[in-house]
């Protein structure tokens, strides 16, 4: 039954994949860059997601620059030079910013250590009280 469900499920999805518009490569690269840039007028969304007029225009700029042969990094650098690092939806991983990437990893590592120690202790010592 599950097999049927899965087949059904992904058949529809697969057909969705094959139908891509003609200039799909440029569109996909634009989407890739645009989803990393923050929409200035809506604040939370990327310019890829935001339906606002300015976002559409910024997407057009991204597309034009990519078409003109700029690399995604160069396009991002252009927007940083105009709007500051704020425009990046993901902070660059250097300096102080490393903290926000490292802290969760440190927490998980420490937590795993604590769990290993605790489980070892709780399984070894016989019940007291």
């Amino acid at each position: 039954m599950i097999r049927v469900l899965v087949a059904l499920l992904f058949a529809g999805v697969a057909s969705a994949q094959q139908m891509m518009p003609a200039d799909s490569i440029l569109e996909a690269r634009t989407a890739e860059v645009a989803s990393q840039l923050r929409c200035p007028v809506c604040q939370g969304l990327s310019i890829q997601d935001s339906p606002s007029e300015l976002s559409q225009q910024m997407r057009a700029v991204v597309k034009d620059q990519l078409r003109a042969g700029k690399t995604p990094e160069e396009v991002k650098a252009y927007f940083i030079s105009k709007y500051g690092e704020w425009i990046l939806l993901e902070p660059k991983a250097h300096g102080f910013n490393l903290l926000v990437y490292a802290l969760p990893v440190i927490l998980i590592a420490a937590g795993l250590g604590v769990i290993v120690l605790a489980v070892r202790k709780w399984t070894q010592t016989p019940t007291s009280t």
């Binding site: 007028v41 300015l54 057009a60």
Partner: peptide
């Protein structure tokens, strides 16, 4: 047109 200059100047609103 296309707010090209506005974007060049880092316009928010």
């Amino acid at each position: 047109p296309g707010a090209r200059t506005a974007i060049d100047y880092g316009l928010y609103g």
